[in-house]
Design a protein around this nucleic acid. Structure first.
Lengths: 339, 339
DNA sequence: AAAGCTTTTGACACCGGTTTCCTTTTTCGC
DNA sequence: GCGAAAAAGGAAACCGGTGTCAAAAGCTTT
C-alpha cells in the first residue's frame, strides 16, 4: 500500500500494478495498443486506489488545459445563467470546467483586461455573450492569443465555426404578423440601444414586416430605449401620448415591455383590451407580470450547449448547428384592437 | 531572441537575463532575498518578452491551483449572478478564477456527483449557495477532500471561517414591525418550502415579531409555498378567501409575493389600498411589478465577496465578517389598512 | 589578510502526467 | 521451426514552474 492519506498518483498505480507509468497512462487514455490482460489488471488497481489523474499535471504535459471561459456583460441574469446551464450540459461527463468572467463593456481597458485574463488563465476557449460578442476586436484578440472562441448573438457576425445565432429578425417579423392578423394597424416600436446588434436586428425585422403589410411607421410610432425598465416606461409614455395612439407596442426586450405595462397603467389603459404589448426574451418577468406577457423566446440554453460543443467537439453533429429558431410565446398581453 | 511565436517560458527569461530559473522565480514571487540589481534586470526582460507564468505549471509545482468553485442550485438567477460578481470583486487582480457548477439538489447522487467534480478539478476552495449550503454532508465532503469551503445562508450553520450569513430573522421582524406601525393587525404569512433553512428563519422571524406585538396568527393566516410564483398565487388565494381577510401579507420571497399581487388582482383588490404586500430578496421583479414592491434586500454581492475572501485571504479584515445586515427596501406595495 | 557572517545566487531534484524512442515478446507465414 | 513483422511495454526526457541545499559573493571583524 503506498503512503496512505495522500491522493494516489500515477506512480502509485504503476508500482502496485507492476507496470510502468506509461502503461497506466495508456490505460487512462484508452490507447488501443494494450493487451486485455494488462488493461484489466491496471483498471483494478485504479479502482482500488480510487485514482484520479491530476488535471494540472495533464494540462502541463498536454500544453492545454480543460477550462472554458464565459465572457459576458450581464445582459440579463436569466440569460447568463441559462447559458451557463447549457454549457454545463455540453461538458457534463467530460473533464472540462467552466470559468466565468463578467466584464464591463464600457471600460476603456476592456481589451487589455481580457488579454490579461486570457494570458493568466490560458483557457482552452471562451464563449462570448452579447453585447460584447459584437466586438470584433475581441474575436481578433482570441485568434491572436491562440484561444478558441465562439460568439453568441442575434445575427451571424462570424463564420459558422465561431458563431451561434438566433434569428431575431424573423421572429420579430412573426410577432408583427401576429399583431396584424389580429387587426392591429397602428403598431409602435420601442427600440433597443444604438450600437447593439440585437437592437438593430429587431428594428429591421419590425420595419420589414410593417412594410410587407403595407403599413407606414411614422416617427411618432418609434421611440428609443436602452433595454432597461425605465427607458421602456419613458418610451411607452411618448408613444401613448402621441396624437395617433398605437393599439399595439412591440418592445425590443421584456424589461422595456414591462415598463410599457406600467406606462399604460398610469394612463388607465388596460392591457390587452386597450393596448397590446409584445416583448422579447421570454424572461421570468414576462410570466410574472400582470397580465402574463406575450413575448419571443429564444433557446438560450440550447445555444449555450451548442456553443460549448463547437469549442470542445467541433466534429460533433450538434456543433454544426449555428442558427437557432426562436418562437413566439403567446400569453395574455395581446388581443384584437377595440372597434 | 528565443524561438519566437511561442509564448515565452521561465527558461527564456532566465537565458536572456543571464540568471537561473530559480532567480526568475524569485522575482515573480517577490521574494525578499534578491538584490535590487538583479530584480530590475529580470523585470526588464520579463516586460520585454511579455512573459506570464504558466498557471498549470505553477499549480503542479505548488500542489494547489487557483480555482474557486461556485456550487449552486439556482435559487434565483439574479442572486447567483450577484454572488458571481462579488466573488469577482474579491479575486480581481489575483490569479484566481471562478469555476461555476450548477447542481440538482434532488439528484440522489448529489454528493457523489460533487465528489467526482472535486476530485476531477481539485479546486482550491468552493462557495456553496443556499439551499444546498444547508447540506452538512456537503461540508463534510469538502473537509474530507481537503477542499476549502464557505457556505452562504440565512443563519450561522457553521463556524465563522466557513460561513457567511444574512440575518433573515431580524429583517423579517423589521418588516412586520413596519406593517404593525402602519396599523396592520391581520397580517398573513406565505411560507417557504419545508426543509429550507431560509424558510424556517423567515417564518420564525415572522412569528416572533407577531408574538412580540401580542398579535395572534391563526392557521388561516399561514399558507405554505414553494418559493415559486404559482405557489404564491395559490397561497395568497387561500389567505384572501379566508373569512377574516388579512390586510397585509408577508411572502417569504419576491416570486411568491408577485404571485400574491396576481391573486389580489384576480379578486379586485388593489395593492396597496386594499392589501399591503412585502416580499423578500429585492429581486428585479420587485422593482418591475406594479406597484413597485416593498421588500427585504440582502447584500448578496458583498456576501459573495466576503465568502471568497474567507477562502483566499483568511487573514484579511473583511474576511472576518460573517454576518451581513439586510435592509427593508420601501416602495409602493405597503400602505396603512383602510378604516 | 584571514576568518566568520550574511546575503545572493544557482544546480538539481521534484510535482504528475505525456511523448519519444527503443527493447522485448508474441504472432504468423512459409 | 525460423525469421520477420506486429504488438506490448518500458526508460528517460520533457512540460514549466517551485523547493532544497549548498556554493559564491559581499561585508565585518580581528
Amino acid at each position: 500500500m503506498p503512503k496512505s492519506n495522500k491522493t494516489p498518483t500515477i506512480n502509485d498505480v504503476a508500482r502496485l500494478a507492476g507496470v510502468s507509468k506509461k502503461t497506466v497512462s495508456r490505460v487512462i487514455n484508452r490507447s488501443a495498443l494494450l493487451s486485455e490482460d494488462t488493461r484489466t489488471k491496471v483498471e483494478a488497481v485504479i479502482a482500488e486506489l480510487g485514482y484520479v489523474p491530476n488535471p494540472q499535471a495533464r494540462a502541463l504535459a498536454l500544453r492545454r488545459n480543460f477550462l472554458l471561459g464565459l465572457l459576458h456583460d450581464n445582459p440579463n441574469a436569466q440569460t447568463v445563467l441559462k447559458v451557463q446551464e447549457g454549457v454545463l450540459d455540453a461538458i457534463r461527463d467530460t473533464e472540462f470546467a467552466l470559468v466565468v468572467r463578467p466584464v464591463d463593456r464600457h471600460s476603456p481597458t476592456l481589451i487589455e483586461d481580457i488579454r490579461h485574463f486570457l494570458e493568466l488563465q490560458r483557457l482552452y476557449g471562451v464563449l462570448i455573450l452579447p453585447p460584447i460578442s459584437e466586438n470584433d476586436a475581441l474575436a481578433e484578440l482570441c485568434l491572436e492569443m491562440g484561444c478558441g472562441y465562439v460568439r453568441m448573438g442575434s445575427a451571424m457576425l462570424d463564420d459558422a465555426d465561431h458563431m451561434v445565432a438566433s434569428n431575431d429578425r424573423e421572429m420579430v417579423e412573426a410577432a408583427v404578423d401576429h399583431l396584424v392578423e389580429l387587426g392591429h394597424r397602428r403598431i409602435a416600436l420601442i427600440e433597443g440601444p444604438k450600437g447593439f446588434r440585437s437592437a438593430h436586428e429587431r428594428r429591421e425585422g419590425f420595419l420589414a414586416a410593417m412594410a410587407r403589410h403595407g403599413l407606414v411607421v411614422p416617427d411618432s410610432a418609434r421611440a428609443p430605449g436602452t433595454y432597461r425598465f425605465e427607458s421602456g416606461l419613458e418610451a411607452a409614455g411618448l408613444l401613448l401620448d402621441a396624437s395617433e395612439r398605437p393599439t399595439a407596442i412591440f418592445a425590443s426586450n421584456d424589461e422595456m415591455a414591462s415598463g410599457a405595462f406600467h406606462a399604460a397603467r398610469q394612463r388607465n389603459l388596460r392591457v390587452p383590451d386597450d393596448l397590446s404589448i409584445i416583448g422579447f426574451d421570454d424572461s421570468p418577468i414576462a410570466a410574472h407580470i400582470w397580465p402574463p406577457m406575450t413575448t419571443v423566446g429564444w433557446p438560450v440554453r440550447e445555444m449555450g450547449r451548442a456553443a460549448a460543443l463547437k469549442l470542445i467537439a467541433p466534429a460533433e453533429e450538434v456543433a454544426g448547428e449555428s442558427r437557432f429558431p426562436a418562437r413566439l410565446v403567446k400569453r395574455q398581453s395581446v388581443a384584437p384592437p377595440k372597434a
